[in-house]
Design a protein around this nucleic acid. Structure first.
Ligand SMILES: [Mn+2]
Ligand SMILES: [Mn+2]
Ligand SMILES: [Mn+2]
Ligand SMILES: [Mn+2]
Lengths: 216, 216
DNA sequence: GTGTATTTTTAGGCTTGTCTAAAAAAATTA
DNA sequence: TAATTTTTTTAGACAAGCCTAAAAATACAC
């Protein structure tokens, strides 16, 4: 249907569009680790195929048809990540690159059967919602820990940074999806957050608190 | 490691080498549904990478390193086919094209874990042996039904033709892997083979008898 | 508002993998 | 062996996707 490169561009644009209404050439280039000139080339192709709205110098947005493709890629990515963690016992910091390849396996019948095989999971190993076969999913209304008031509590439900180093750090601290935490104190000097978790007290930096998401 | 096209060429050469000691440009072109000139181009690249032995006009054979790559692709192909049939309930005639894509997922760690997850199966849904993680496997010493003498018996263990139409025909006749059959008669007029299976008697053409493999 | 800095696009080129048409080599036939 | 047919290779071209360098458009600063 679409090439691997096209799918990766559409997915990147979709993700950038969550925070920016119109997505710039440079943003796409940074997110795909490529050059702005390469992005411009691809934008022309995607516009020709009616997958994006694009006029030179004006930034881009996905058309309905482009968004459908992007969401389907994300569905596949997250289902394969779930499979790798739940069935093949990979750790949550090991699965991203494999899923990056597997998301391009074309058959939708295959992914629907995989979904069924796993019992229709609603979130991937990083807490991100998995779109259903119609592309529907609830958007995460999660807050970073840094946005919590002192003495409020919540459940760890997602991450903003998906890098292996960050995930490994969280794992080591026991800060994994589903854990209940409470904010005991925020140190005014550098915004270090003091957490209560189980019977332990631990401190995390402002940086970490910004990237760790909580459902309240 | 290698491109998708390279992997497909190596696999095709490997399979052709089973029946021909030296593989010709035209054979490869036919098997990959491409043009002879395209094949020549690729053969130069594969020779440069020391994956095949090649001198112009002389046909090709795989080097040890090329064979290792080919066997690994076949291992992946057959394990994914097994997964699709045993875990996702696809039929044996539906899985080939999907596996054709999935065999190119690069991670060997992934395929080893998949192998373990499924209990280290030894044969794919079509009866073909699955190489282990070191590339070792027993070659099928199976005979076509057409080579059986009248009144001899055996177990259906493989197919020579993997096309969906052929597999669907076998399924419909109940001629599936594991079934025990005996040759009752060969009709001299057109070599139609009369089989006893379970409590039924059925006839298959010479063509079918040539493509259905038996362990004795 | 003019000038500078930044962003984006264009121009031209490269690699991979494909194609058609023509040339060269090998195999077959007479 | 000479002529013909078949196979294989070469020559030249093209699309996809990427690059660098330069030009054009836009944004920002004064
Ligand atoms: Mn990808
Ligand atoms: Mn994820
Ligand atoms: Mn393939
Ligand atoms: Mn098979």
């Amino acid at each position: 249907m679409h090439t691997l490169a096209e799918e990766n561009y559409l997915k990147a644009i979709y993700k950038l569009a969550a925070t920016n209404p119109s997505v710039s050439t440079n943003q796409i280039a940074a997110s795909l680790d490529t050059k702005a000139s390469s992005v411009t080339d691809m934008l022309r192709k995607l516009a020709d195929k009616m997958l994006i709205n694009y006029q030179r110098y004006q930034g881009v947005s996905l058309t309905q048809s482009g968004e459908k493709v992007a969401i389907n890629i994300i569905r596949k990515h997250r289902l394969w990540e779930y499979f790798l963690v739940e069935k093949l016992n990979f750790k949550w910091d090991e699965v991203h690159d494999m899923a990056e390849e597997m998301e391009h396996i074309s058959s939708n019948e295959l992914i629907d059967r995989l979904d069924e095989f796993m019992g229709f999971p609603r979130r991937d190993p990083h807490g991100d919602p998995i779109p259903d076969s119609n592309g529907h999913f609830k958007t995460n209304d999660l807050k970073p820990i840094s946005a919590l008031a002192v003495s409020s509590a919540g459940v760890i439900s997602g991450v903003r940074d998906h890098s292996a180093v960050f995930l490994q750090y969280l794992e080591k601290q026991g800060l994994t999806i589903g854990k209940k935490i409470a904010v005991k104190e925020v140190i005014s000097y550098d915004n270090t957050v003091v957490l209560q978790m189980d019977n332990k007290v631990l401190q995390i930096s402002r940086e970490v608190a910004n990237n760790l998401l909580i459902a309240i």
